[in-house]
Design a protein around this nucleic acid. Structure first.
Lengths: 108, 108
DNA sequence: TCATTATCTTACCGTACAGTAATATGATTC
DNA sequence: GAATCATATTACTGTACGGTAAGATAATGA
């Protein structure tokens, strides 16, 4: 079930959480430790807390392997949660989103 | 100049500000007072402050007429500011955004 | 013109919430 | 049992929101 718009923006408001999502979107999946390495300024518990928020929002999924917890971005949930809000403004948008679309269709 | 992503999400994080944008996207342009009427739980100064934040972010524009200040949504700035972030995830997205696009192309 | 009213903005203050670090607890592997 | 990794809990802190009140500017009316 897609996330409520208020919830979505509350979760995405934090720069660290967005950076975590960015990181996970580049790599296939990462353990908490590896994510933590990308944030030397934060302690692991802080990372874990953000991951909990993201997981509660279903924007990431976690599978455990031994004592490691591997996180991946849930792009589908992100997309579906954002779509209702985007739809309210997309009628204005032709240029930038189309450019994005074109770029993804004709990769360099 | 498009808004920094951190700034953008910080501004959009507040539900009231998003509701103001929604309102302005429906109507052509509105005076502060009229916007305030849509938020009976808030005092006018509160609305004004949110409008200042939106204006500083260039997500709305204001023109004054006498003692009225008329606000409009700046859809172009919203689009351009959001595009860089969206582009990082759009490669995952085909379904929902395309459905949105199709819907806007073939209105009922 | 002067006072009054209307509209919007700014300043100040209190409160509530969210992020971080530190610590403790739980779970898994060796 | 010892060590490692992840999560939960607690305490601290800063910040952002909202209200009240004051300030600024413009219209109205005597």
């Amino acid at each position: 079930m897609p996330l409520d718009t208020d919830e979505l923006f509350r979760v995405l408001a934090d720069p660290t959480r967005r950076r975590i999502l960015d990181l996970l979107s580049e790599k296939e999946s990462l353990a908490v430790n590896d994510i933590g390495k990308a944030f030397p300024e934060l302690v692991t518990s802080g990372i874990s807390k953000h991951l909990m928020v993201l997981r509660a929002a279903d924007l990431v999924t976690a599978t455990r392997d031994g004592r490691h917890q591997y996180y991946s971005v849930n792009a589908k949930a992100l997309e579906e949660s954002l779509a209702p809000w985007l739809s309210k403004y997309e009628r204005y948008w032709t240029s930038a989103l189309e450019r994005l679309r074109d770029a993804s269709e004709r990769p360099a």
